[in-house]
């Protein structure tokens, strides 16, 4: 029904593979047979009008749908060839390796340090305090926040500005050194300047991680992503290199959407 190319960036290894993924909430189908292959060390953007299923699909990738009563996921989803919906895969382990950043910055009501140290602590990744200090510093540096907060690590995370909070949350996610980072409209609650910083950050992180970002803004998708997938009414309509999608969409719905006829 749709014409998707399985691997738009052949030079990069494939990280995530979805085959006929369906999701239904209490019997209502929200996602229809999505198949996609997402390469490592690049940014893949999911775009589409609200309610199109892009966030739902994102939440499949770290099994966050498990936390919703009545959610059912079907089909096959693999990361590095390993089926993540398999019974033998523990969601705790999966989520440790798949970080997630949410729409609204959600730092815990703890200090900046404790926010970043949260993951390493619960997973027991650091045995000594210096080790933990190092992890925290690295994560904050990678998130580009170290210079701004190094002198007030004991301040509550909620005392930071919105953009800083979002970078703190990213630092929190990368502190456990995940393989995939999911971002669910990470800039929708931020002003343009903070958005620019985050986009810069995403671009830097691309070196080391497989990043999947859901966004409302087509400009943002065009700016940060290498691949773009367009979702509509629970279907994956079109998927390909970002350039192709924006300059030469094959599906009329994609065309209508990016030209602003609906959305």
């Amino acid at each position: 029904m749709t014409d998707t190319s399985p691997n738009p960036a052949a030079e990069l290894p494939i990280k995530v593979v979805a085959r006929d993924v369906t999701v239904s909430y209490s019997g209502k189908q929200a996602l229809h047979d999505v198949s996609i292959e997402i390469p490592d060390r690049s940014v893949t953007a999911f775009i589409g009008p609200s309610g199109c299923g892009k966030s739902t699909f994102l939440r499949c990738l770290n099994r966050m749908n498990d936390t919703i009563d009545g959610a059912k996921v079907g089909g096959s989803l693999t990361i590095d060839g390993q089926e993540i919906n398999d019974k033998s895969i523990d969601p705790v382990v999966l989520r440790a390796s798949v970080g997630m950043v949410f729409q609204k910055p959600n730092p815990f009501p703890k200090s900046i340090y404790d926010n970043v140290a949260y993951g390493p602590r619960i997973h027991g990744l650091a045995l000594t305090r210096p080790e933990l200090d190092e992890i925290v510093e690295n994560a904050l540096r990678k998130a580009g926040l170290w210079e701004e907060v190094s002198d007030r690590l004991n301040h509550p995370g909620t005392s930071l500005s919105g953009g800083q909070q979002q970078r703190l949350v990213i630092a929190r996610a990368i502190a456990v050194n995940p393989e995939v980072i999911l971002m669910d409209e990470p800039c929708s609650a931020l002003d343009p300047i903070a958005t620019a910083r985050i986009e810069e950050l995403i671009d830097e992180l691309r070196e080391n991680y497989c990043i999947i970002i859901v966004t409302h803004s087509m400009q943002q998708a065009a700016r940060v992503s290498q691949q773009t997938a367009f979702f509509h009414m629970g279907n994956l309509v079109e998927y390909g290199p970002t350039e192709d999608i924006f300059t030469n969409p094959r599906d009329t719905r994609t065309q209508d959407y990016i030209t602003g006829r609906f959305g």
């Binding site: 969601p91 989520r95 970080g99 609204k104 959600n106």
Partner: peptide
């Protein structure tokens, strides 16, 4: 959102509750 944030880090329920 705080619960989601914690679960997304791979915390168990009791860790999310306690921490």
């Amino acid at each position: 959102s705080l619960r989601d944030g914690s679960y997304a880090m791979g915390a168990t329920k009791s860790e999310t509750i306690g921490r």
